[in-house]
């Protein structure tokens, strides 16, 4: 397993854990305080999810990179897979962002707009990771 494949898998697992943790916090707050989602204090958990998720990914990336010292970390296949998968999820992010823009003009609560941006950002990265891992496991279509 190459360094790029390891970092992609690590990022996917971390992203999933952080994403689930964010929603556990939001749902728990909504249930325990008996308030609708739009009245939950979501800003702190979302900011924490972005910063902690990004920080943990950077640390795991550094560890995997460091453990592979002395070996060739990337090769031509990594480069080809990166090229192949790099636009996967971009369409989803674009459509989701357009949806967020329409929601803002319709005066939808900021919670739902931010949640839409957060969700499509996460899902786009998940699609990208899924395509990358599938390309490593099953090869790229010719």
């Amino acid at each position: 397993m190459t360094v790029t494949e390891r970092t992609t898998i690590a990022g996917t697992i971390l992203g999933l854990v952080v994403f689930i943790a964010y929603w556990v916090v939001i749902i728990t707050r909504a249930v325990t305080d008996d308030v609708p989602f739009v009245d939950v204090e979501w800003q702190g958990p979302m900011l924490a999810a972005i910063l902690v998720g990004g920080g943990l990914y950077a640390v795991s990336y550094g560890i995997i990179w460091w453990r592979a010292r002395g070996t060739r970390r990337t090769d031509e296949r990594d480069f080809e897979i990166e090229r192949y998968a790099e636009t996967a999820g971009a369409g989803l992010a674009g459509l989701g962002s357009l949806a967020a823009l329409i929601m803002l003009t319709l005066d939808v609560d900021t919670f739902w707009v931010a949640t839409t941006l957060f969700m499509v950002g996460y899902l786009a990265s998940l699609v990208n990771s899924g395509v990358t891992i599938a390309a490593y496991r099953q090869g790229m279509p010719s």
């Binding site: 800003q43 790099e86 636009t87 971009a90 941006l117």
Partner: peptide, 22 residues
């Protein structure tokens, strides 16, 4: 497309931060 996606991801942080700041 890939580079544009990267640019958009960076620029889209601005409205997200503005939303977080209320």
């Amino acid at each position: 497309d890939a580079l544009s996606f990267f640019v958009f991801s960076v620029l889209a942080a601005a409205p997200l931060v503005l939303g977080l700041m209320g």
